[in-house]
Amino acid sequence: MGFDAYETIGFAAAVLTTIAFLPQVYKTWKTKDVSSLSLPMLILFFIGIVLWLIYGFLKHSPSMIFANSITVLSAILLLYFKLKYGKK
């Protein structure tokens, strides 16, 4: 298996975009403050990430699978926090 410049760029993008999302998950977990999180946005984001993950599997793209797997888990956590800590 040789060097693949496209996947290298993909992994760099995957790491950066995934890392960028994690502070929001951490902050929400620590503060339990979900008032600034929009439930419709979180649902649409989650569906979009799941579709990107499926696309990554269909394209056999390790970078897309890696990034979107982690981001799906992060989005699930934010959805959980929003539903648990949001105003009823």
Results as ranks from 00 to 15, higher is better:
Leu39Arg: 11
Ser63Phe: 05
Leu44Cys: 14
Ile49Leu: 13
Ile47Lys: 02
Leu83Lys: 15
Lys30Ser: 12
Asp33Cys: 02
Leu22Pro: 02
Leu51Arg: 05
Trp29Ala: 13
Tyr6Ala: 14
Tyr55His: 15
Ala14Met: 06
Thr17Gly: 10
Leu78Met: 14
Ser35Arg: 13
Ile70Cys: 14
Phe3Gln: 08
Ile65Asp: 08
Leu83His: 11
Lys59His: 11
Ala67Arg: 11
Leu58Glu: 08
Leu39Ser: 08
Ser36Phe: 11
Phe46Lys: 01
Ser38Ala: 06
Leu53Asn: 11
Ala12Lys: 06
Ile47Asn: 00
Ser61Ala: 15
Gly56Trp: 01
Met1Lys: 10
Lys88Val: 07
Leu83Glu: 01
Ile43Met: 15
Val34His: 01
Pro23Trp: 06
Leu78Asn: 07
Tyr55Thr: 09
Ile49Cys: 00
Pro62Met: 09
Ala5Tyr: 15
Tyr80Asp: 07
Ile70Trp: 05
Phe57Ile: 08
Lys27Cys: 07
Phe46Cys: 02
Gly48Phe: 03
Thr71Tyr: 02
Ile49Ser: 04
Ser61Val: 06
Lys59Gly: 06
Trp52Leu: 12
Ile65Gln: 03
Gly10Ile: 12
Gln24Gly: 10
Ala13Arg: 07
Leu58Pro: 00
Phe46Trp: 09
Asp33Pro: 06
Lys32Met: 07
Pro23Arg: 10
Val15Pro: 00
Leu37Val: 05
Leu53His: 06
Val15Met: 13
Ser38Tyr: 03
Leu42Gln: 11
Leu83Phe: 14
Thr71Met: 14
Ala67Gly: 12
Ala14Val: 04
Thr71Gln: 09
Leu73Ile: 11
Lys30Thr: 14
Trp52Tyr: 14
Thr18Ile: 05
Phe66Cys: 09
Phe21Met: 14
Gly10His: 07
Ser35Ile: 04
Leu73Ser: 15
Ile65Pro: 12
Leu22Ser: 10
Leu42Ala: 10
Met1Asn: 11
Met1Thr: 13
Tyr85Val: 00
Leu78Ala: 04
Tyr26Leu: 15
Lys30Cys: 09
Val50Lys: 01
Tyr6Lys: 14
Ser61Cys: 10
Phe57Val: 11
Leu16Glu: 07
Val25Met: 05
Leu16Arg: 09
Phe11His: 08
Ser61Glu: 01
Asp4Met: 06
Gly56Pro: 10
Val34Phe: 01
Lys32Tyr: 05
Ile19Ser: 13
Phe66Gly: 02
Thr31Asn: 03
Ser61Arg: 01
Tyr26Pro: 05
Leu79Met: 08
Ala67Lys: 08
Leu79Asn: 12
Met64Asp: 02
Phe66Arg: 04
Tyr55Met: 09
Ser74Arg: 00
Lys88Gly: 11
Phe57Asp: 01
Leu22Cys: 10
Leu58Ser: 13
Tyr55Lys: 13
Thr8Gly: 10
Lys82Glu: 09
Tyr80Lys: 13
Tyr85Thr: 02
Ile65Lys: 08
Pro62Gln: 03
Ile19Val: 15
Ala12Asp: 04
Phe57Ser: 01
